[in-house]
Simulated scan of single mutants.
Amino acid sequence: MNHDLSDKDLWEKVVADNTRAFAVLYNRHWKKLYNTAMYYLKDSDTAEQILHDAFVTLWQRRKHLKIENFNSYIYVTTKYQVYKHLRAPKRIQTESLEDYNELATVLNIAEDRISHDDVVYNLKKCLSELPEACRRIFLMSRLEQLTNDEIAQKLGITKRTVENQITHALKHLRLSRSEILIACVLLDLL
């Protein structure tokens, strides 16, 4: 199997039942995903199990998934699996049963309604409501993972301006519908 193929090309082969392409994708992304899961879980066995489950589900659903950006998709899927694990009743610490029930209701509704495409669409729609400069700075920070100093230098503005714009964007996202908020958590944007 040619390891120089792009994720998109490999995914097309996976959809056509090519297990070697799937193994290449797995090997290419496993370490980063494992480190992400470990960051949140602090348990190697659970992190490995979540990755295993995420990739098994991916293989099982390969014929039905429309994946444009494999790296983003598998990252969000892994974070979602971690999030599901962490929100299990034995792990959630809430002030009261009422708080837990409200959170569970919101999460269940969101889980039923949000697919990856919905997440991306709703997030883009929400971000499109921001001023252009604010949106650009937020995307540079969260998607390109640039530091505030790097953004300031790149755009020729102060670090304080960058911080203010990111704060404004986060406030806007937090005030948006609960599905957007959950999407942001899953995408590690908040």
Rank of each mutant, 00 (worst) to 15 (best):
Y75S: 11
N71W: 03
L97K: 06
E95M: 04
R177M: 05
H172P: 02
V56C: 09
Y121M: 08
V82R: 06
M1D: 11
Y39V: 02
L107C: 03
W11N: 03
R20G: 09
V15G: 07
K124F: 07
A16C: 04
T77P: 03
L86G: 08
V185D: 09
A88K: 05
D117T: 10
A88T: 02
L41S: 00
Q153N: 12
V76R: 11
R160Q: 13
R177K: 15
D43E: 05
S96C: 03
F55S: 06
S44T: 05
V56R: 04
K79Q: 14
P89I: 01
F22V: 08
V15C: 11
D53R: 14
V15E: 10
L170K: 15
A16L: 10
V106Q: 14
R142L: 08
T19M: 13
N18T: 08
E150Q: 15
V162W: 02
L130N: 10
V120Q: 05
L86H: 05
L146F: 12
F138Y: 09
L51R: 03
L65G: 01
S44A: 07
L175Y: 05
Y100N: 00
T158A: 13
K90E: 13
K31M: 11
M140L: 15
V119Q: 12
W59F: 09
R62A: 09
K42Y: 01
N18L: 12
I157H: 07
I157F: 00
Y83S: 08
K79W: 14
L5G: 10
E150C: 04
Q93C: 00
N164V: 12
E12I: 04
A54L: 02
N148F: 01
A183S: 14
L103F: 11
E95G: 01
G156F: 11
T158H: 14
L173M: 04
V76P: 00
